[in-house]
Computed example of a mutant assay.
Amino acid sequence: MLNFEYEGFADVAAAELQATRARSLADDLDRLLSGKQPFAEQLAKAPLLERWSVVAARVPVLQGIAIGHPSELGTFAPMSTAPLVIAAEDRRWIRCWDGFWRLGRIEDGQDSVWSDPSVTIREWR
């Protein structure tokens, strides 16, 4: 969350980062709305999430084992994604607030949560 004070944002750099992420997300949404798939380069650079599962939260996120994520946590680190915005029906990729993820194997027992839209909508609202 960004703090906005009378004089402006408390952390201008953080606000600029969120604006950049929002523009990137809008560009990706426009591309997908036009019927195009994510760029191959985008998915090639995207981290891989293995043994992932849906997390019941106020917003939809996935958690799993991150491979190739550019964070200080390192490779094969358990982590949660940023809020989920788009999910490919074939489960090959997702677009979160901050970027694309490639999806590996789903965690055991999660198939019904992913495939039943009434469950995901109810859980994520």
Rank of each mutant, 00 (worst) to 15 (best):
K36V: 02
E7Y: 02
I106G: 11
W93D: 05
R102V: 01
V54N: 11
E50A: 08
R51Q: 01
W93P: 02
E7P: 00
C96V: 06
T120F: 12
P117M: 12
L32I: 14
S112L: 14
R23M: 09
Y6S: 04
D116M: 08
R23D: 14
I65S: 00
R51Y: 00
E107P: 00
R23G: 13
T81F: 07
G104L: 02
E72V: 15
S24G: 14
E16Y: 05
R23I: 02
L49K: 05
P60C: 09
W52V: 01
G104E: 03
S118P: 04
W114Y: 15
Y6T: 10
G8W: 04
D11H: 10
V119E: 11
A14D: 06
L73Y: 11
A88T: 05
E72N: 11
W114Q: 14
E123M: 15
S115D: 14
A19M: 09
A66T: 06
R125K: 15
V85T: 13
W124V: 04
V55H: 03
T75M: 07
A66L: 09
S53V: 03
L2K: 08
R125I: 11
A40Y: 02
L17Y: 01
V85R: 12
K36N: 11
H69M: 12
A82L: 05
S53W: 05
A13Q: 12
V85D: 07
A10C: 03
S80I: 10
T81E: 06
S112M: 12
T75E: 10
C96W: 04
D90C: 06
R125P: 01
A77Y: 05
R91V: 04
G109H: 05
A56D: 01
L25Q: 05
D108L: 08
E107R: 01
A10Q: 11
A40L: 09
D116K: 07
A10L: 10
W93C: 04
V59E: 14
V113D: 09
R31V: 13
A77T: 06
A40H: 08
D90H: 07
E50R: 11
A14V: 04
I106W: 05
S53Y: 04
A57R: 03
K36T: 03
L48G: 06
A26N: 06
D111V: 12
G64H: 00
E89A: 15
D108I: 06
V61E: 14
V85S: 08
S71C: 08
T81Y: 06
W124H: 07
F100A: 15
V113Q: 13
L49W: 04
E123H: 09
E16C: 09
Q37H: 03
E16V: 07
E89D: 15
L103T: 00
A14M: 09
S34R: 15
K45S: 10
P70N: 14
